[in-house]
Simulated scan of single mutants.
Amino acid sequence: MSNNNREQGIDYGQLNEKLEQLDYPISAETLIDEYGEYGIDHQNGTKTLQEVFDPLTESDGQTFDSADQVRQMILNMIGSDAVGRKGYSDRGSEHVDDEEKSL
């Protein structure tokens, strides 16, 4: 997995390069037809672009104007599936009482 293909816990793999080479605007349907089998890795496994975008096929003419818009939609559609341990925070567990708040 290349770090250049990873964003917010999602690894776009070879799809990332393909997205950069496309002519935009492009429809969700065309993306699914041409790249639906491409895998998108996340914390809890892998989904194909078709699995992620399948709900978009029910909408009327979803189009994208850039690779960034496609990646953002992937992030939106995968949602909580990409989250590792839910409720986990690496920020510590220090509790601050209301009386201790700084002014």
Rank of each mutant, 00 (worst) to 15 (best):
L19I: 02
L103Y: 04
M1Y: 07
F64E: 04
R71F: 04
N16V: 01
L22Y: 07
G79W: 15
E100H: 15
Q43H: 13
M77A: 11
E20M: 10
D23W: 12
Q21L: 15
G92R: 07
G36Y: 03
E94T: 15
N4H: 10
N3L: 04
E58N: 04
G13L: 09
T30L: 07
E100N: 13
Q62G: 08
Y88T: 01
S80W: 15
H42L: 06
S2V: 05
D97Q: 14
A28I: 05
L56Q: 04
L56S: 02
G84C: 01
I26P: 02
I10Q: 09
M77C: 11
G87V: 03
V70W: 05
G13C: 08
Y35W: 07
N4V: 07
E20N: 06
V52Q: 05
F53G: 02
D60K: 14
G45M: 10
Y24C: 00
F53H: 06
I74S: 05
E17L: 13
M1N: 14
G84S: 03
F53A: 00
V70H: 06
L22A: 11
D33K: 02
S80I: 12
M73L: 09
L49V: 05
Y88V: 01
E37L: 01
A82V: 07
M1L: 12
I32D: 12
G84Y: 03
V83Y: 05
Y38Q: 10
E100K: 15
S59M: 09
Q62Y: 02
I32W: 13
A67I: 09
Y88D: 03
Y38G: 00
N3P: 10
Q69W: 04
R85L: 11
L49A: 07
